[in-house]
Each structure stands twice: as C-alpha cells, then as structure tokens.
Simulated assay, not measured.
Amino acid sequence: MKTREIGKTGVHVTEIGFGTAPVAGLYRAVDEESAQAVLQAAWDSGVRYFDTAPHYGAGLAEERVGRFLKDKSGYVISTKVGRLHIGVPEGKGGDYGFVGAHPVIQHCDYSGAGIEKSLEVSSKRLGMDRFDIVFVHDIGPYTHAPGDNERHLRAFRESGIRKLNDLKSAGVIKGWGLGVNEVPVIMDIMSDTHLDVILMAGRYTLLDRGAEAELLPLCRKRGTSFVIGGVFNSGILATGPVEGATFDYMEAKPDVRAKVAAMEKIAKDAGTDLASAALHFPFQEPVVASVLLGTAKASSLQRNLVALEKPFDASLFPRFEPHVIR
C-alpha cells in the first residue's frame, strides 16, 4: 500500500489507515475476538497506520490495539489527548456512546499537565513509550459549551501547545495536530501556531466540502497534512439515500437524500457506485495523507479496500454537487 508523509515530520502513513472507535464498541458491543480479527484483516491488507484515542471505549480501543501490535513492527500509531478518565464502579460511569466501555467519569483537560497525564496513561494501555502522532481531541464549540470552550482554549494556549512542542523536541512524539470536526477552531489555532496534521471527519467529502474554501489552501501553504475520517458522512454515502440513512450522525433530511440520489445516479451512469466515488474523492487533494476506515467487520473493510483498488476516473468528481459548501 502506498504511503504519504505527514507534514515534514518524516512519518509516512499508509494511504488507508484504520480508525479504531468501532472496535471499542461504538454504538454496539464488540467482543475481543471480533476486534482482533478486524485489526488482523487490516494488517493483512497492508494497512500500517492505526488511529486510536482514550475516548474510544474509555481506553478499550487503546488496550486492544496495544495487544494487537505488541509483536509487530513497521506501523504508525496516533492517539489523542484532551480527555481524562476517573474509574468508577460498574454501572456508575457516564454514557459516552460506547457499548461495553470501561466504567468511567470523563473530564476534559487541554493543559500541558493534562496532556502529559493523558499520554502517560495511553502509554500504559498501548504498551508504548513513543507515539508517532498526537491529536488534540474535540477542542472547540462543536463539543464544548461556550464557557467551557473558552476555558479549554485558554489552557491549551497557555501550556498545552508548549507541552506538545516540548514532547516533539524530546522525541516522545514525532508530530501533533488537531482531531476535530469543525473548521473555525482549526483556523483560530492555526493563526498562532503550526500544526503538522489535522484529523477531520466529514468535512472534505463528496457531500460536505466545509474544509475546501479556506482550510485546505491554508494547509497547502503551511505544509500541514490532512487525515480524513468520516468519508461516508456517517453512512449515507455508503448506503445511498435509503430511508433512515444518516448524515453527520443524524437521520438525513429530505434535501440531503435528494442530493445523494442525484450523486448516486451520476455514479451509476458512469459505471461505478457512490461508495467508490466517496472513497476515492479525498485522494485528489495533495495534502491528504490518509483516509481512515473504521469498522468492526472484516467484510466491510475488505469491500472498501477492493473498491479503492479499482481505477477511478477523477474527471467525474466535478459532476458531484455537494450539499455543504463553505
């Protein structure tokens, strides 16, 4: 599988990475055997970039990835900072969207001390003392109420950025960036610091081009790479405009389904399918280093990888009219 460099870090990731939220029970329980099977399927297909986070199953994803990679080499790993957990008795933890997660109460801390603590815990879960890439997870108003967000941004600017740069200088990490799903907070933070990479879900897809107007040109200028998540916009670009299809993690409205129906017809008339178009779309952008595929089913992963192996006519992309343009 081809690789691309993350910024100027010297870290080369496979063009397809594996996103590990689903193997930690995102929305539905996943047992250990199934989780290890899909991780193995990714490895056997040539995937060598694995993205994880403490948030995924309250540490369960990191533990499972650590067990999988313990006897392997030649991989790239990214994890995230910004959330810390307090263990509580079974049944007393918060509901953070993961079935079978460890029982915890979660709180956010984007300060230097919080980032250092988060990486210490991640290191134990993963069984690693070095990280290739670290993403600052979900900072911004998409996740946090206004007062909380201002506090988190202040802590990040006062000590979090310095801590990440110090860790990079010390060789503990090779690069860092933001893992968020909103453009404005990235533009804000990039106004006063350099980012090696951005992980963003659902904002540079066939359907949603929210990152296209301002953010991508800035990344090209700064040498900041993109890792793409949510290439199917939470489902609808894989399922098509069926009843109950989801867009941006909510049931798609009629106007969105109509837009996708038109895209589906364009793809079919050209002898391809919508999911294949969605998978190939991000790679036309030079700053895109990797597209993350996350699933708990090896069959789903294989289907998408097969679609990516087939040639795709890039001249088709201008015919797809997105729903979101910013």
Rank of each mutant, 00 (worst) to 15 (best):
P318N: 07
L207H: 08
P217V: 13
G240Q: 13
E182F: 01
R209L: 09
L218V: 14
K168S: 03
S118E: 05
D269I: 05
E33M: 00
L216V: 15
L293V: 12
A201C: 00
H107E: 12
R48L: 11
M200P: 02
T79S: 13
V288Q: 04
S118R: 08
A213W: 03
G19Y: 04
G179L: 05
P103F: 04
F68M: 07
A101N: 01
L199F: 02
R83W: 10
G140H: 07
G66Q: 10
A24D: 03
L301K: 13
G114H: 09
R83K: 06
I325D: 12
R151F: 07
A113E: 15
T9L: 01
D166S: 10
Y56P: 02
L293P: 06
E15D: 12
Y75T: 10
V231T: 11
S45V: 07
L292H: 02
S111F: 04
L84G: 04
L237F: 05
G57K: 02
I228F: 06
A35M: 02
F68C: 06
A296F: 03
G97L: 06
K221S: 15
H194T: 09
K80V: 01
D248Y: 10
G17K: 09
K70Y: 01
L206A: 08
V260T: 11
A296N: 10
Q40S: 09
V185H: 03
A296G: 00
K124C: 14
G229T: 05
G240R: 13
D51V: 05
H323F: 15
K221W: 13
A298D: 08
S159Q: 08
G127L: 13
A53Y: 01
G19R: 06
K8V: 06
L207C: 04
E90K: 14
R326K: 07
S123G: 15
F98T: 10
E321S: 15
Y204L: 09
V306A: 14
G177S: 08
V81F: 01
F320D: 09
E285G: 06
V291G: 00
G127P: 14
E5H: 02
L301W: 09
G271D: 11
